[in-house]
Amino acid sequence: MATSDEKQIEDLIRSWVAAVHAGDLDGVVADHSSDIVMFDVPPPYEGVLGIDAYRAAWPPFFEWQAQGAVFELESLRVTAGADVAFAHALLRCGTRQDLGERPAQRLRLTVGLRKEGGRWLVAHEHHSFPLPGTAR
C-alpha cells in the first residue's frame, strides 16, 4: 500500500505526464525545483541545469510531439522517505511510425524529489532510451 507521500508523488508525476502530452509548458515546469538538473535524450550532454534552462528545453519537444507523437505513462513506481524520494517509470514516447517499427521500445524516466516546506519538488529528472539493436 502506498504511503501518503508516495501517492502525492504519483499524482505529481501523472500530472506532469499529462502536461507533457498536452504541450502545457507551465504544467510541465510546475513542481520542479529552481535548481532542477535534467539529463535528457538530446544534448546538451552535461545536462540541463536550472529551471530557466529546463523551461527552454521543452518547446522543441512539443513541436516534434505535435507531429503526431504520443507520450503515455505505462508503469510507475515511487519510493518516498521523509524528505527525499525517487520514482521510475516507463512511457510510450514516439510517433506512430516509431512505435510501429519498435513496439517494445519505451522511454525510461527516473525522477529524484525532495520535500521543501511540506511540498514535493522534482530536483532531478533523467530520460533515456535503450540503444536500438542491443536487446539480449
Rank of each mutant, 00 (worst) to 15 (best):
M1R: 13
A2T: 10
E6I: 05
E6T: 05
K7Q: 14
Q8V: 06
Q8K: 14
E10G: 14
D11H: 13
D11I: 12
R14H: 04
W16N: 13
W16C: 04
W16F: 14
A18N: 10
A18R: 11
H21F: 02
G23F: 06
D24P: 03
D24I: 10
L25V: 02
L25E: 11
D26I: 10
G27E: 04
G27T: 01
V28L: 05
V29I: 12
D31I: 01
D31P: 00
S34T: 09
I36C: 01
I36H: 00
I36E: 02
D40M: 03
D40A: 15
D40C: 03
V41D: 05
V41E: 06
P44Y: 12
P44W: 09
E46P: 01
G47A: 02
G47C: 02
V48W: 01
V48Q: 03
L49M: 11
D52N: 14
Y54K: 10
R55M: 03
A57R: 12
W58V: 00
P59T: 01
F62H: 07
F62Q: 09
Q65F: 06
A66M: 06
Q67P: 00
A69R: 08
V70S: 14
S75T: 15
S75H: 13
L76E: 05
L76F: 03
T79Y: 04
T79M: 01
A80T: 08
A80S: 12
G81K: 13
G81N: 06
V84W: 01
V84Q: 10
A85T: 13
A87N: 08
A87V: 10
A87T: 12
A89R: 05
A89Y: 01
L90K: 15
L91G: 13
C93H: 10
C93F: 02
G94A: 05
T95P: 03
Q97C: 01
Q97K: 15
D98F: 11
L99N: 15
G100I: 06
G100D: 13
E101I: 04
E101D: 14
A104P: 00
A104Q: 15
Q105V: 00
Q105W: 05
R106H: 08
L107D: 15
L107G: 15
R108N: 07
L109R: 13
L109K: 11
T110A: 10
T110V: 09
T110Y: 02
T110F: 00
G112F: 02
L113C: 13
E116F: 08
G117K: 08
G117F: 04
G117Q: 10
R119H: 15
W120Q: 07
W120E: 02
L121E: 07
V122S: 08
A123K: 03
H124D: 05
H127C: 05
H127Y: 15
S128T: 09
P130K: 11
L131N: 07
L131P: 03
P132E: 05
P132R: 14
T134Q: 10
T134E: 11
R136K: 10
R136N: 05
